[in-house]
Computed example of a mutant assay.
Amino acid sequence: MDKTQSIPTIDLSDFPAQYEKLRRSSEEWGCFRVVNHNIPFELMQEMKQVVRSLLDLPIQIKQNNVDVIAGSGYWAPSPKNPLYEALGLYDMASSQAVHTFCSQLDASPSQRDTVAKYAKAIHEVIMDIGGKIAESMGLKGDYCKEWPCQFRINKYHFTPQSVGSAGVQLHTDSGFLTILQDDENVGGLEVMDKSGEFVAVDPLPGSLLVNLGDMATVS
């Protein structure tokens, strides 16, 4: 594979023409970017501001974000992942779960509104992409409809001395798919191709990155 090649970009407004490209991208790369996903750029930017504010809260408040299942609440930096910190909730499709998440962190009314709007918008994109992946494989049905959609907001504590280090340990995602809104200015994200080589994933403003996880691999 040509290491100068970028990961594929899928235009969600161009179906059914993109079905074959989506299928190939899923099988050959296990990841792709999506554009024209109907999430307003302004909402994406507002959510990033809320993420920064919540992760800048005192540790005593962040620790109120407790687990529903293992790993769904607050993750502090650890010896294994010293640069990584995250907050999360188990199912963004649940308005009650979103409300509880915001209450745990004493989110302001405007922050709550942004989180709720963003969670709803991302969930709709997940359902759309999951359905299109199934259809690209010749399958029909709402395969993702009843699945919980875990929601995580992440921070990487890089310093000039730690630039170049891994932000989080090498891993695969355990679920079906992950949608990531990455930084628009700072690169560093890499994915492994079929040959075992790492390929840089360059930022693309306004897009979303989709990773297929372990459940998609075995499906």
Rank of each mutant, 00 (worst) to 15 (best):
N185F: 12
K48F: 13
D67N: 11
I179Q: 02
T178S: 09
P58M: 13
R52V: 06
A17Y: 08
S78Q: 05
V34I: 15
K145P: 04
V115S: 00
S174D: 11
L55S: 02
Y156T: 12
V210N: 02
P82V: 05
Y156E: 12
F15N: 05
Q60P: 10
G141P: 14
V34S: 01
G138Y: 14
V163E: 11
S26V: 15
N211I: 15
T217Q: 14
L204S: 01
Q49A: 09
D182V: 13
K48L: 11
S174W: 10
Y19F: 13
F176M: 05
I7V: 15
G130A: 07
V168Y: 03
H37C: 08
S165Q: 08
N185I: 05
E146Q: 15
P205N: 06
L54A: 04
D11C: 14
T172K: 14
E146D: 15
N185V: 09
R23C: 11
C149K: 11
A70L: 13
E124H: 07
V210W: 03
V191K: 05
S207T: 14
P205G: 00
I61T: 08
D128R: 13
H123Q: 11
D106A: 06
D56A: 12
T9Q: 08
M215R: 10
E20L: 14
G141W: 09
M47P: 02
M92E: 06
D2H: 14
D214I: 06
V125F: 04
S219W: 13
